[in-house]
Design a protein around this nucleic acid. Sequence first.
DNA 1: CTGCTTGTCAACCATTGGGTTGAACAAGGG
DNA 2: CCCTTGTTCAACCCAATGGTTGACAAGCAG
Lengths: 123, 123
Amino acid sequence: MTDRLSRVFAALADPTRRDMVARLTEADSTVNDLAAPYDVSLQAISKHLKVLEDAGLVSRSREAQRRPVHLEAEVFDLMTKWIERHRQRAEERFSRLDDVVAQMNEDGTTAPATRTPQEGTAS
Amino acid sequence: MTDRLSRVFAALADPTRRDMVARLTEADSTVNDLAAPYDVSLQAISKHLKVLEDAGLVSRSREAQRRPVHLEAEVFDLMTKWIERHRQRAEERFSRLDDVVAQMNEDGTTAPATRTPQEGTAS
DNA sequence: CTGCTTGTCAACCATTGGGTTGAACAAGGG
DNA sequence: CCCTTGTTCAACCCAATGGTTGACAAGCAG
């Protein structure tokens, strides 16, 4: 099986699952209630829940015939940590680059283009 | 076509791609150099890069025959924003729950239901 | 017991995803 | 001008994913 972080990212790579997670931040829910807004079968939602559960994003208990779904919000930390760690490294590097540029400007060397903004194509 | 956020999450759901991103935080790189550590064909890496590019996580320019790959770190914000928004909502809810429990313990009432939350919906 | 509600399991199908190999293209450097 | 380097395109394979339908387990309500 793939590692935890991969499963979490993969789980959130689906809009329906992200929406389910979003709704679960408001309240625990049963499978039926969760499924209501979407135009797919209950079984499909059940599968989505399995994905979320395997990723550790939700847990399910038992309550009569119902299986309340509960969000495990701590898992967010796993992603945040990864992202922030790398964002930080990237930013450190940029500031290092800025230093180089500043240095060159001081020396009176030919001013190179500063960091190109160059936004990706709109999608 | 899936939405941007989905593509970003999907792109990072693969360990090889995450590792490439990690290495790109240190320095821009050519496809060949990027591919070196992995035990797959160059074409496979090229595909991975396409995924990262479609997600807006990297951009490629041209430099002689080389195609330097550059990390677009701002995209991290997209994820961070989504994650933090929902983490926060979940936490607010937890503290609200704590309030309810505290309330019940104080005056022994049943189901207070003060403070109807009803936040704006978002995906 | 019967029957409705809630949810899962199993089998199946179409699409996507990650990998391969082989050929092609782009841009210098002899 | 051809050759080498760097990278991508195209066709193909196989496993995984997201969806379907049909059957069935588990509880509560009659």
